Simulated scan of single mutants.
Amino acid sequence: MDLIINMPIYNSIGQQYSKTRIPDIRIVNTLIDLLNLPKGSIIADIGAGTGGYTIELAKQGFLINAIEPSLVMQKQAVEHPQVKWFSGYAENLPLPDKSVDAVVSILTIHHFSDLEKAFQEMHRIIRDGTIILLTFDIRLAKRIWLYDYFPFLWEDSLRLLSLNELINLIQKNTKRRVEAIPFLLPHDLSDLFAAAAWKRPEMYLNPEVRAGISSFALANPDLIEQGLQLLTADLSSGKWEKKYGDIHNLTEIDIGYRFIRATLDN
């Protein structure tokens, strides 16, 4: 089942989005490596948000068509001469056929209302280049402490397609060979998406951080409050450290995040 975010909610959670969803250089570098394109190539960034990764790619010499349905998000973007902004949805991209060299979509496909249509649209607008997605499959994840305090994060993610189902859907609708590349989350990510602060539990007590995570914004406030009260108490008493402190020995962790690269067979 796809997760559908209606625009009023997303306009609301996007108000301060650019403050906590700062593009992480390791994600940027991985994107560039996977794209393997010369400067001057045209890239469609679908679900570009506030343009964090859009601008980073533009700085590397790419021409970016940024597609984003939320005007609240678009207005937070920094202007760049190599970025053109378009209002639109993944299921009906406002770009001509075969008009881009590659497509990227970063932590967005769980927001799409119709994945099959979205992948068909990616196939329509791209020439013979690569489609790069960053997504996650909770089934591949180690069940870390976060889900003990906020179990709805785990339960809601189980509604999404599995990685294998997703790969099959992409192959069917883009006529491309698909591979998944694990993205182990560093301990100091600047882009504070859902599991990014896995080693920094106090970050989840910050309402500004939670506001930039759609899973929190869409959750039952009572369930969030229960988790916050328990997490606050356990951090204060030392119970969290006693139970989960071993996580401090890790510098990166696999919590189910994957880059997906879809390429045409040569």
Rank of each mutant, 00 (worst) to 15 (best):
P96G: 14
L107I: 13
A118G: 12
S113P: 08
H110Y: 15
V100Y: 08
I138L: 01
E155N: 13
A90D: 01
L146Y: 08
V100L: 10
V103S: 05
N92S: 15
K98M: 05
A90C: 04
I138S: 01
L146E: 00
K142H: 15
Y89R: 13
P94R: 07
F119Q: 00
P94F: 07
L146A: 03
I132G: 00
R143T: 09
D101K: 09
F112M: 05
L153G: 04
E155Y: 09
L153W: 10
L95P: 00
R124N: 02
D137W: 09
L115V: 09
I144R: 05
E121S: 02
P96W: 13
D128G: 14
D156P: 06
L134V: 10
K117V: 10
D137N: 03
Y149F: 11
S105M: 02
L153T: 04
F112G: 03
W154R: 11
V100C: 00
D156R: 12
L158Q: 14
G88P: 07
W85K: 03
R159I: 09
V104Y: 02
F86V: 07
I106Q: 04
K142G: 11
L153S: 06
Y89G: 05
L93G: 01
F112R: 06
K142E: 15
R124Q: 02
D156W: 12
G129T: 10
F136H: 11
A102Q: 06
Y147P: 01
S87D: 10
D156K: 12
L146R: 01
D114S: 09
L115A: 07
K117I: 11
K98D: 10
I131E: 02
I144A: 01
F112K: 03
E155L: 10
K142W: 14
F136G: 00
F86N: 03
A118Q: 06
I109L: 12
A141S: 11
A90G: 13
V104H: 01
L158E: 15
W154N: 08
L146K: 01
N92H: 13
Q120W: 10
M122L: 08
P94C: 03
F150L: 02
G88E: 08
D114N: 14
I109N: 14
P96Y: 15
A118W: 09
W85T: 01
S105R: 08
H110S: 07
E121F: 05
A102L: 03
E91Q: 07
W85V: 00
F119W: 09
I138D: 02
A102V: 10
L158S: 04
A90V: 05
E121N: 04
K142Q: 15
L153R: 06
K98E: 15
R139N: 14
S87Q: 15
I131W: 04
H111G: 04
L115E: 06
R127P: 03
E91N: 06
S157H: 09
L140S: 14
